[in-house]
């Protein structure tokens, strides 16, 4: 009997669908899955009780979960989570927490797992230019990339046990600065449309935003675009020195497909490339390639999407 402990992933105060994916992954690693829900209000945890394949839910209730503090969260979660294989999401915050939890238990952490087969864990190395398969002896903490495991459905039912917990907060939040843009961050989006230097000017990214608005997509950029134009912030950069993403759909516009960029987006489920150069390396990775200038192709794409989504 191998115990697994899933740390629920929350967004905007609610358990999100990634948690169902974590339960699926956990059930490939063990045969008894406890979900720990870090929360300030234990009713949030009810949703975890409905996920199939969960044998126990612990609502870890504490005021420390109001704002993220790595030390306090690790301490509070560690005190309520049983021993076993701990499974977290591979979001930036949860990877940080995973590393803390593992260190606290003097066990190893394996980050960014994208596949589990016969107990072996696969993780991308060199930003996905290669895959490393590892086996782990004993307990560990494992973080799972979102969008790589099929989510467990919501047909289960198990009770929620509420445990009050606490931890020593070591950072003090002074201010939360809202992002200038209302748009989704590339690391959170299911669809991303990215522009490269081929866009010509940063102002032309408005054409990408137009399509992003139709699709509920985030707008990303290549390193070349970020390095060239101050108006394109590093937070938009997809690639080995930017963000690694795996959305359902990635649309690359005016991006040639440097190794650096491919490393950050090649695991996307579907890739569309629009480039005027028929020999651009990006086409080798595209499910659908359009050889045309973006000036010609984007208006057609935009109106076609409007028709389909009408």
């Amino acid at each position: 009997m191998t115990e697994t402990i899933v740390i629920a992933e929350l967004s905007k105060g609610e358990i999100n669908n990634t948690t169902n994916e974590l339960v699926s992954a956990a059930n490939l690693l063990g045969n008894s899955c406890t979900v720990v829900v870090p929360c300030t209000d234990s009713s949030v945890a009810d949703k975890a009780g409905k996920i199939s394949g969960v044998s126990k839910v612990i609502a870890a209730k504490s005021s420390v979960f109001e704002n993220y503090d790595a030390a306090a969260w690790a301490e509070a979660i560690d005190s309520v989570a049983p021993s076993g294989i701990v499974v977290t999401s591979a979001s930036a915050q949860s990877k940080d927490l995973a590393a803390r939890l593992a260190a606290r238990r003097t066990i190893s952490v394996v980050q960014d797992v994208i596949a589990i087969e016969d107990g072996k864990l696969s993780t991308p190395i060199y930003s996905g230019k290669a895959i490393q398969n590892v086996s782990v002896n004993g307990d560990s903490v494992v973080s799972i990339r979102a969008n790589t495991f099929a989510p467990a459905d919501d047909s289960g039912s198990c009770d929620v046990q509420v445990i009050d917990t606490t931890g020593n907060v070591t950072t003090a939040l002074q201010e939360m600065v809202q992002r200038a843009s209302e748009r989704l961050d590339v690391s959170e989006a299911n669809i991303i449309i990215s522009g490269g230097r081929g866009m010509g000017t940063p102002a032309n990214f408005s054409h990408l935003e137009n399509i992003a608005d139709k699709l509920g997509a985030a707008v990303g950029a290549s390193r070349a675009a970020v390095d060239t134009w101050d108006e394109i912030p590093h937070s938009m950069q997809v690639g080995q020195t930017g963000k690694t993403v795996n959305p359902n759909l990635y649309i690359a516009v005016g991006i040639s497909g440097a190794i650096q960029h491919l490393a950050g987006m090649r695991s996307s489920k579907y890739i569309v490339a629009i480039n005027k150069d028929a020999d651009a390396p990006i086409f080798q990775h595209a499910d659908y390639g359009i050889v045309a200038t973006w000036e010609d192709a984007l208006p057609v794409l935009s109106s076609s999407l409007s028709d389909l989504l009408a």
């Binding site: 629009i274 086409f283 659908y288 359009i290 050889v291 192709a297 208006p299 057609v300």
Partner: peptide, 10 residues
């Protein structure tokens, strides 16, 4: 993948 020529293929 599938590769198309020209903007109308969008």
């Amino acid at each position: 993948g599938k590769k198309f020529e020209g903007a109308s293929s969008a």
